[in-house]
Simulated scan of single mutants.
Amino acid sequence: MLTRKQLELLEFIHRRMQKDGVSPSFDEMKEALDLRSKSGIHRLITALEERGFIRRLAHRARAIEIVKLPETMENSGRAGFEPRVVEGGRPESTPNTAMPLDALGVNDLPLLGRIAAGTPIEAITDGAQHVSVPGAMLGAGGRHYALEVKGDSMIDAGINNGDVVVIRETSQADNGDIVVAQVDGYEATLKRFRKNGDMIALEAANPAYETRLLPEGQVKVQGKLVGLIRTY
Score class of each variant (00 low, 15 high):
residue 140 A to Y: 11
residue 92 E to M: 15
residue 53 F to R: 00
residue 12 F to N: 04
residue 72 T to F: 08
residue 107 N to E: 09
residue 10 L to I: 10
residue 135 G to K: 02
residue 37 S to Y: 10
residue 203 E to G: 15
residue 227 G to L: 08
residue 61 A to I: 09
residue 91 P to Y: 04
residue 158 G to M: 08
residue 203 E to S: 14
residue 28 E to D: 07
residue 216 E to K: 12
residue 199 M to T: 09
residue 15 R to T: 12
residue 222 Q to R: 12
residue 213 L to S: 15
residue 177 D to C: 05
residue 72 T to P: 12
residue 45 I to R: 01
residue 25 S to L: 05
residue 86 V to K: 09
residue 62 R to D: 13
residue 170 T to P: 10
residue 31 E to C: 05
residue 159 I to C: 01
residue 199 M to C: 09
residue 62 R to H: 15
residue 63 A to C: 11
residue 196 N to D: 09
residue 99 M to N: 13
residue 60 R to C: 06
residue 200 I to M: 01
residue 19 K to Y: 05
residue 70 P to R: 01
residue 192 R to I: 14
residue 171 S to R: 13
residue 215 P to G: 03
residue 29 M to D: 06
residue 210 E to S: 13
residue 22 V to Q: 07
residue 9 L to H: 02
residue 84 R to I: 10
residue 186 Y to H: 14
residue 124 I to H: 05
residue 61 A to Y: 07
residue 86 V to G: 04
residue 71 E to T: 13
residue 209 Y to D: 04
residue 211 T to N: 01
residue 163 D to V: 03
residue 69 L to V: 07
residue 228 L to K: 04
residue 10 L to Y: 09
residue 159 I to W: 00
residue 187 E to H: 10
residue 48 L to D: 03
residue 5 K to Y: 12
residue 123 A to L: 10
residue 65 E to A: 00
residue 45 I to H: 00
residue 58 A to F: 09
residue 99 M to Y: 15
residue 54 I to L: 04
residue 86 V to H: 02
residue 195 K to E: 15
residue 155 I to V: 08
residue 216 E to P: 10
residue 155 I to E: 07
residue 39 S to D: 07
residue 113 G to E: 00
residue 86 V to R: 01
residue 125 T to V: 15
residue 16 R to E: 12
residue 14 H to W: 09
residue 213 L to W: 12
residue 81 F to H: 12
residue 138 L to T: 04
residue 84 R to C: 09
residue 151 G to Q: 03
residue 40 G to A: 10
residue 147 L to G: 03
residue 228 L to E: 07
residue 107 N to D: 05
residue 84 R to Q: 09
residue 90 R to H: 14
residue 112 L to I: 08
residue 223 G to E: 01
residue 172 Q to M: 13
residue 147 L to T: 08
residue 163 D to E: 05
residue 33 L to Y: 08
residue 209 Y to H: 14
